[in-house]
Design a protein around this nucleic acid. Structure first.
Lengths: 346, 346
DNA sequence: CTGAAAGCGCTTACAG
DNA sequence: CTGAAAGCGCTTACAG
């Protein structure tokens, strides 16, 4: 290893090591107490004009950024809300995350996202890391099943909102919908339009499984033959949609409808049908899930199921803030429902 | 307002308010000092077997979750890395985020995502909130332009990695690529395949703009007529791709290639071309950007540009950890390049 | 292997 | 309007 020259010994790197400016430094510079600095920053009107000005000058010249961790520790208030989203979802939850972020931002809270699901086994470890940071609220996508996870969240005392799904036993609060009922509704929709041999293509996430079982139940109720199904992995792909419908048609050429667990699967089905010269919706109806932006403009346009992610996010934000600030929560469980968006494909 | 009955006065809500278990509580229960509990949890082998057992029992029975905020404050170490991703990107950065999360998780760090971009004006406020939590590292998607933002990050002393783009003046470290060169390469690719009137459809993000200008420069160098362009908003959509190619063809029916700033735009172009009976790639070549999963299985399959998001994430993780743990960073600026994935559409 | 003291950077609670 | 003291829940640094 060469002897470092002075230049090598002090690369740009070196400059990054100096300690951050603290409240004490600012107080010294401004010639006031730490408390006055703290007040000048958080509630400027509680402080004399001169104090305010001197503090502001010191803050600006020193580039002071308050340590929220320290403040939060003392005040037992983090103004941080953690949202856990699955890696596997892609754009489906984007709408919810955005509206959650906006609504909480407006009330002075910051949202941090945690990715869950790339290693299901590490879910409890991740939860522990999150609870350990003592956020003022936790938003989960889906409901929590792990007993360990439920216990930890419950014991933490942190407000929790589960979303996008329904359960009779939420940990705390819930903003979601019944995927069973959704599956039933889609089956009814197809049957009412004369379809007799519907099938399904599904990813392996649990909400898709619930939609599936609702669909089967409704088919049975209506006296239809048990719908065939093709299963792929989540996140679902265009390729799986093509493969799925090819596989289904191979074992039963009379299939006349497919309910897909995502719009991307449905798009794959549309592609495969076109390549094979199968008329959609003439010979085959296709229904997606999610109402992603492309559903409206593909050709044929895609009939799908829409869930109002914006409303989920806003409602969750409201619940978290109410609970975090000690207000009564009138309706801790909200069913936001779903709607079938009728377009050309079914 | 009705007088609350005892049931109303003590809803499930009430149970969530009790204070969290602390190290002191566990120490008392286990009959040892706080330090012994702290050691038993963090370095169990430094503690006698009896102590360890008593602590473990107490921790389990009380459901103790250490307050990482308090620990981090004292130790000046948060084991938290914040990644800022644009709301507008959709699935493009998913790969990077996942590999970043995995690589950092393996080293004991936790990644939290912050959404940027739904309100550009709030970018500095968001940065302030993030710096205020004193993460051990910050990963930015794109490069930082705001002078205020650059100053704040620089002054914070927190390791920063900018990604997905290139600049001569990174704040700290950089893992990216030149979008100008990428644009040049795509133009050359199309010209080499006999295309004479290429055009572009672009979202309004700055990396798309750089690809655009590289493309124009290369076109000029090759003596091609100045490529026409259609601009839409980011996030780009399937609808915009359809509209864009329709608009371009209306003003110049002889266009023979389109470079789109996203695969979703390109998919819209494929749809519009099919509906109009325009042969792709016979009469019109289409190139996307991103190599999303569907690019391979749409029909015709989509020629596109791939960026190795996994490698970006892994490299960024390595840089952050090295810097955070005081190791020398050999190569603080990494060009990961790009590749054109040739398929049917061009 | 164990523990008492000090301190991380703030805010609360209290007194002027 | 201002400030000195205490404390949030941990870990560091030191002493045994």
């Amino acid at each position: 290893m060469p002897t470092p020259t002075s230049t090598e010994a002090m690369p740009p790197t070196g400059a990054r090591e100096r300690a951050a400016v603290t409240l004490r430094d600012v107080a010294q510079r401004a010639g006031v107490s730490m408390m006055s600095v703290s007040r000048a920053i958080r509630s400027p009107h509680q402080v004399s004009p001169q104090t305010l000005q001197r503090v502001n000058e010191a803050v600006a010249s020193m580039g002071y950024v308050p340590n929220l961790v320290a403040g939060g520790l003392r005040a037992s208030k983090s103004y941080l809300v953690t949202a856990l989203v699955p890696t596997t979802t892609g754009p489906l939850f984007a709408e919810m995350v955005q509206s959650l972020t906006e609504a909480l931002d407006a009330r002075g809270y910051q949202v941090m996202l945690g990715e869950i699901g790339y290693a299901r086994s590490r879910e409890d470890a991740l939860l522990r890391a999150i609870v350990g940071r003592r956020p003022d609220g936790i938003v989960l996508t889906g409901v929590m099943h792990s007993e360990e996870g439920r216990r930890m969240l419950l014991a933490s005392g942190i407000p929790v909102v589960e979303t996008w799904d329904f359960t009779a036993t939420p940990i705390d609060m819930l903003v979601g919908l019944s995927h069973e009922r959704l599956g039933e509704a889609v089956c009814a929709y197809l049957h009412q339009r004369g379809r007799r041999r519907p099938a399904l293509i599904s990813g392996d996430d649990e909400r898709a499984a619930r939609r599936h079982s609702g669909f089967l139940r409704e088919a049975q109720r209506r006296g239809l033959p048990t719908p065939a199904a093709h299963f792929g992995r989540s996140p679902t792909t265009h390729a799986e949609g093509r493969l799925g419908v090819a596989t289904l048609l191979a074992s039963d050429p009379d299939i006349d409808a497919v309910f897909c667990s995502s719009d991307m699967l449905a798009l794959g089905v549309l592609t495969e049908a076109r390549v094979r010269g199968i008329d959609v919706p003439g010979r085959l109806s296709v229904v997606g899930f999610g109402d992603l932006a492309f559903a409206e403009t593909v050709s044929p346009s895609l009939t799908t199921v829409r869930i109002d992610g914006t409303r989920i996010g806003q409602t969750a934000a409201q619940l978290i803030v109410d609970r975090a600030e000690g207000h009564a929560v009138a309706e801790p469980v909200v069913d936001i429902g779903f709607s079938i968006v009728q377009r050309e494909s079914a």
